[in-house]
Amino acid sequence: MAAGSVPLTTADGAPVEVRRSARRRRTVAAFWENGTAVVAIPAHFSGAQEREWVDRMLEKLRRQETKRRAGAAKGRTDAALAARAAELSATYLGGKAVPASVRWVTNQNSRWGSATPSEGTIRLSHKLQPMPQWVIDYVLLHELAHLLVAAHNAAFWRLLAAYPETERAKAFLEGVSFATARGLPADAEDDVDVDGPASG
């Protein structure tokens, strides 16, 4: 960005970072990273190509966010999450984990979920909302188990052993974390071939 130029922002004021990569030849990607909209483009792009693709990819992120919010409104609400917690506790924990509250939060950037056993509260990161239900169920069950066993010890993992998607969900979340930490798009749909239909 040239000195004195106005910083890029999304329509709702979030900062935008453009990353040029020599390794990226034919694709453009957009993703969120710590509250910043990141658009990754090939290093050889001209200024005009950069502007065109940044606009396109920011619009793509906007549509995805609209879709995510619509999905949340259809069932990924705090009330729906609490109801699901009760179902999972009954199915896998004999109904022993009874949280005082279960809710989505937007301030958890380094954890998928957290529990406070002394208060009986569970919080799940809103970043889970677009993920498959079996992944959300795993994180929710994980936090429910913490209401019964605080540590990650053998007793804790025995509580999760009955859930059939435990290992699959752990691997899924590790993959998302790995990609995000390296600035890669966690969602393959964010990667657009510049020579494909989207380029017009």
Rank of each mutant, 00 (worst) to 15 (best):
A3N: 08
A3T: 09
V6P: 03
P7Q: 09
L8R: 13
T9P: 02
T9C: 13
A11V: 11
D12A: 03
A14W: 08
P15V: 09
V18M: 07
R20L: 09
R25P: 03
R26A: 12
R26E: 06
A29F: 05
A29T: 12
A30N: 05
F31K: 03
A37Q: 09
V38R: 14
A40L: 04
H44Q: 14
S46M: 02
S46C: 06
A48T: 11
E50P: 12
R51E: 13
R51V: 11
W53T: 07
D55I: 12
D55S: 14
R56K: 15
E59G: 12
L61N: 06
L61V: 07
R62D: 06
Q64F: 04
R68H: 10
R68C: 09
R69H: 14
R69T: 11
A70T: 10
G75R: 12
R76L: 15
R76S: 10
A80L: 05
L81V: 04
A83K: 13
A83W: 07
A83D: 09
A85E: 07
A86V: 09
A86R: 10
S89Q: 04
T91M: 11
Y92K: 06
L93S: 08
A97V: 04
V98F: 05
V98S: 09
A100T: 14
S101A: 15
S101C: 09
W104D: 01
T106N: 14
Q108M: 14
Q108T: 11
S110F: 06
S114I: 12
S114V: 05
T116R: 13
S118H: 13
G120E: 02
R123D: 07
L124Y: 04
L124T: 02
L124G: 06
H126Q: 08
K127D: 11
L128A: 08
M131W: 09
M131V: 06
P132A: 05
V135W: 07
I136K: 06
D137S: 02
D137T: 01
V139C: 09
V139W: 10
V139F: 08
L140N: 00
L141W: 03
E143H: 02
L144V: 00
L144F: 09
V149W: 00
V149G: 01
A150Y: 01
H152L: 12
H152P: 08
N153Q: 14
A154W: 05
A154L: 11
A155V: 02
F156R: 08
R158A: 15
A162E: 02
P164T: 00
P164R: 04
P164L: 10
T166D: 08
A169N: 05
A169D: 01
K170W: 00
G175I: 01
G175V: 02
F178K: 12
A181E: 08
R182M: 04
L184P: 01
P185C: 05
E189G: 13
E189S: 15
D190L: 11
D191E: 14
G196V: 03
G196E: 01
P197K: 06
A198I: 00
G200H: 07
